[in-house]
Amino acid sequence: MPDPSPSSLPPPRPRPSLGELFLTLARLGLTSFGGGVSGLLHAEFVRRRRWIDEDEFIAGLSVSQALPGVNVANLAIWLGYRCQGLAGAIVGLGAVVVPPAILIVLIGSLILQLSANPAVGTFLAGIAAAAIGLSLSVGLRAARHAMRHVVPIVIFVLTLVGSLVLHLSAPVLVATFGPIGIALAWRRYSREQG
């Protein structure tokens, strides 16, 4: 059964304090081995704590992906800004960058040695697979969000094929399909309003 649409959920809870924001983001940032953080953030911010709703999250995710920069950092800035303004944005960025940066400098080589151990290596590979699964769930939600009209469906399929089969880079795909998608959505919304 798909989960209920955002409108049928109870109203969002109060916004997190700066401290909560930092601890939540830092904890998730330190749990991610090899990607999948947007999935972690979705599970925590939208589904578990309900600090922001799904539409807002997907808007932030889409903008974060299309702008330059590390996706996780962009999304943390976006979520932090949404929850606590400028201070939230700074705390958000700091939370996903500073703790892992300290860790990688201090015990990066140790982690590399540990991961050569078969048992640890298997567990880390399992964490990575699970994190990829969380990414997949966010990708599917964004796809569902886009599947309301024909053109977005076509753009979704072309992006997928362009990336997987033609090995086109993200900037090329964003530069090609971004303007088309935005222009068509704009025309549709202006017509609905006018």
């Binding site: 299309a66 469906i153 992006t159």
Partner: peptide, 27 residues
């Protein structure tokens, strides 16, 4: 318009990266 226009690209990029990560994943 921006959110709806970019969503299918974000979805495509994420799912493409999921597929290529899993294709080279251990196990």
């Amino acid at each position: 318009a921006v959110a709806t226009g970019l969503a299918p690209i974000a979805a495509g990029l994420i799912i493409a990266s999921v597929v290529s990560l899993l294709a080279s994943a251990r196990g």
